[in-house]
Design a protein around this nucleic acid. Structure first.
Lengths: 138, 138
DNA sequence: CAGGATCCTTTACGATACTG
DNA sequence: CAGTATCGTAAAGGATCCTG
C-alpha cells in the first residue's frame, strides 16, 4: 500500500470512529428527538416533554433522560412543588449538537418531499399519530 | 393556547416528525458508518467495505446494505467475475446525507477532545480495536 | 408527578454452516 | 465471493403497578 493511501485510510478510520462515538451516545429510539425537543424549547417539565415527544412512555423517557444527563447533554432540575416536578433543559454542551440535530431534521424534511415527488403511492411514515400533545413552552 | 404558541408548536412537531423519519432510515448499529464509508470512498467491494467498517459481520453488512439500497441511498453492482463480486457505492441521493454524516463525525471528533479535557479518568470508547483493515479504495 | 421495580415481548445482533 | 438460512443470545422497548 502506498504511503499516500495509508494516510487517507487513517483519516477515514478516524472519522469512522468518531461517527461510532456519536451514534453510541445518540443510540436509542428517542434520544435524538428528546434532544431536538429540548434544543427547540429550552426547559420543559417531564410531562410536557413526554407529550411533546409523543408516543414515548414514561419509563423510556426517564431512562433516556438519565443517559443524556450522564453525558452532560441535558440538565435536570427538581422543582419545589407538591407533588414534586422536574424540569429538563439542554446544557451548553448539549447545544453543541445543534448542527447535527438541525441537519437530521432538515434532511428528514427534504426526504418527505423526495418521497412525495418520486412515487405516487408513497408511504408517509410517522404521520401525525397521537398528537394530542399540548405544548407548554414550545 | 395563544395562536402564536400554536404555530410554534406545529413547527416543532413538524421537525420532530422529520427527525423521526431520518433516524428510522439510519437505524441500526452500522448504517451511518456504512454510509459514511461510502461517502468517503465511492465504490467499494463487499469485502473491502466490510474491512473498512470494521467489526461488522457479513450477514449484518449484507442486511444493512439491502435496507440502504431499498431507500435508494446506495447502489449495488454485480461484477462479472468468477466467483461473483459486488460493488457498492453511494447514490446521488445518498450524497444528500453528506452534511448529516459530516456533522455527526465532526461532533464525535470534538467530543473526544471534550472528554479528554474534562476528566483525567475518561474512557475512550471504540478504541482502535481490530483495525486490521486494509483500505483498498479509501 | 417523577421514576423505580417487575415482567414480558419483540427486535437486533451475531456465529455458524451452507450454496450458486 | 456474496449472500441466505438457521439458530441462539442479548438488548431494547413497553405495559403495569407501586411509592415518596
Amino acid at each position: 500500500m502506498k504511503k499516500e493511501k495509508q494516510e487517507r485510510s487513517e483519516a477515514c478510520n478516524h472519522t469512522l470512529l468518531a461517527i461510532r462515538d456519536t451514534m453510541e451516545l445518540l443510540s436509542g429510539k428517542w434520544k435524538v428527538q428528546i434532544i431536538g425537543t429540548l434544543i427547540m424549547t429550552e426547559k420543559l417539565k417531564f410531562m410536557d416533554l413526554k407529550r411533546t415527544v409523543g408516543g414515548i412512555g414514561a419509563k423510556m423517557l426517564s431512562k433516556e433522560l438519565q443517559e443524556l444527563e450522564i453525558n452532560q447533554l441535558v440538565k435536570r432540575t427538581v422543582c419545589n412543588t407538591k407533588p414534586i416536578t422536574v424540569e429538563y433543559e439542554i446544557t451548553e454542551y448539549g447545544k453543541s449538537l445543534q448542527k447535527v440535530i438541525y441537519e437530521i431534521g432538515a434532511w428528514g424534511v427534504q426526504h418527505r418531499k423526495h418521497l412525495f415527488n418520486s412515487t405516487s403511492e408513497y408511504v408517509l411514515l410517522n404521520e401525525k399519530e397521537d398528537t394530542t400533545g399540548v405544548f407548554q413552552t414550545c
